[in-house]
Design a protein around this nucleic acid. Structure first.
Lengths: 210, 210
DNA sequence: ATATTTATTGAACGATGTTCAAGATCGCTG
DNA sequence: CAGCGATCTTGAACATCGTTCAATAAATAT
C-alpha cells in the first residue's frame, strides 16, 4: 500500500508548490482549483483528496512563507551584533525587504480570512507566534528589568508598528513610496521608538529616586 | 424627467446604506448583490443601473466610513490641547476606538482590492489622503524646523505604525488582546515614538555644535 | 393620445468551490 | 497470477456568485 500513498504525498507537495507559485504570480484571488489541478495533472475534484479545502491549502502555503520569513529574520539578527538597537533595526529592514520581494505571498498571510465558524488550526497559529521570538531577544537585552510578559507585549507592539509601516508603504492604493525611502523611514522610526522606550523606562525608574 | 431621476437617486442612497449595513453585519465577504436587491426592493440586475459594479459600491461605502472616521479623529484633536504629544496620543486612541466600534466597515477599507487593471478612482484616493491631515498639524507644532515634505513622510509613518498596532491587535487570528490593554499599548508606544523622534531631532540639530 | 426614449426586469451566462456516484486502480490472498 | 474487496480518481453536476442583455414596462415628449 506504499505506492498509492507515495503518489498521494508527491501530489500533495506538488499541489502546495503550485499553489505557492500561483499566489506569487497572480495574488491570493488568482488561486483557482481548476488551474491547480491542470498544473499538477489531475482532475479538479482530486484536489479535495489532497487537502480538505482551499482554506487549508492557503494555510499550508502560508506556513511555508512564514518559514522563509523566519529564516530571513534569523539571517538579519545573526550577522554580528553591535547593539540590540542595531539588531532590531536590521530585523525590521529584513521584514520590509522580505515583504517587498515576496509581495503576494506575504500579503496572502494577512488577506486570507477563515469563515467565522471555522477557526484557524493550532499548527497555523503556532507558526505565527514564532515571529515575535526574533524581536524578543534584543528587547530583553535592552530592558533586563522587564518581565517576560511585558517584553512579549512590547515585542508584539513593535512588530505590529513595523508591519503597519510595511503594509501601507507597499500598498499601491496610496502614493507609491520608493522602497529605499521606505527602508529609511522604517529604520528611523524604529530607532526613535527604541530611544523613546528607553527614555520612558529611565524616567519611570528614576521616579523613585526623586 | 425629474421623477425618474429622483427615484434613481433615492434608490442609490438606499443601496449604499444597505451595503453599509450588510458589511457591518456580515463582513465584506458577506456582501451579495441579490440580497441587496431584495433589501431595497428591486431586481438584482437593477443594482447595475445604480452603480457600475460591486467595486464602486464598496468604495462608496468606504467613502462614508472614511468620513465618519475623519469626524471621530477631528473630535479627538478638537478637545482642549495641553500639548501636541497629548493630541497625537488622543488621535491614535480615537483611531483604535473607531476601528473597534466599526470593525467590519473599517476592515473593508483595507481588505478590498481592485482588479489589477482597474485602478482606484481619484475621488477615492483623495478620501484616504485626508486622514494624514490630522497628524500633520500636531507634528508641525512639534517640529517647526522640518519641511512640509518631511512632515508628510513622518505623518504617514506614524499613522502606519498605529494602524499596524490596531490591525494586528484587533485580529482574532493571534491571541485576542483586550481592548483596554491595546489602548494602553498604543498610548505608550506613540508616546515613545514622539519622544524618540524629538530626541533624534535634537541630537541631529546639536551635531553641528559638537 | 400616440410615439419615442428611457428604465427595469429577471432569465441566462460564465466562473468558481465543492460534492458524489461511477469507474479505474491498487493491494492482498488463494 | 487471477480475482476480489477496498480505495482512490474522475469529471459531470450542483449551488452560488457577479454580470449582461433582450424583452417589457414606464415615463416623457409631441
Amino acid at each position: 500500500m506504499t505506492k498509492a500513498l507515495e503518489r498521494r504525498e508527491k501530489l500533495r507537495v506538488d499541489l502546495i508548490q503550485a499553489a505557492e507559485q500561483m499566489i506569487a504570480e497572480r495574488g491570493l484571488a488568482g488561486l483557482k482549483t481548476r488551474d491547480l489541478a491542470r498544473e499538477i495533472g489531475c482532475a479538479n475534484g482530486a484536489v479535495y483528496n489532497l487537502v480538505a479545502d482551499v482554506d487549508e491549502l492557503v494555510l499550508r502555503v502560508g506556513s511555508r512563507t512564514l518559514l522563509r520569513l523566519d529564516e530571513a529574520l534569523s539571517a538579519a539578527e545573526g550577522a554580528g551584533a553591535p547593539s540590540p538597537q542595531a539588531t532590531l533595526i536590521r530585523i525590521a529592514i529584513a521584514y520590509c525587504d522580505f515583504a517587498a520581494e515576496n509581495l503576494e505571498l506575504w500579503r496572502a498571510l494577512f488577506e486570507h480570512r477563515m469563515a467565522a465558524d471555522k477557526p484557524l488550526p493550532d499548527w497555523s497559529i503556532n507558526d505565527q507566534l514564532q515571529l515575535f521570538r526574533h524581536i524578543y531577544q534584543p528587547l530583553a537585552a535592552l530592558f533586563p528589568e522587564r518581565s517576560p510578559e511585558e517584553l512579549g507585549i512590547t515585542a508584539r507592539s513593535l512588530f505590529s508598528a513595523v508591519h503597519g509601516m510595511v503594509a501601507l508603504g507597499l500598498e499601491q492604493k496610496l502614493v507609491a513610496v520608493p522602497l529605499p525611502a521606505l527602508r529609511k523611514e522604517i529604520a528611523n522610526l524604529v530607532h526613535a521608538m527604541i530611544d523613546g522606550l528607553i527614555g520612558r523606562a529611565e524616567q519611570k525608574g528614576s521616579a523613585a529616586a526623586d
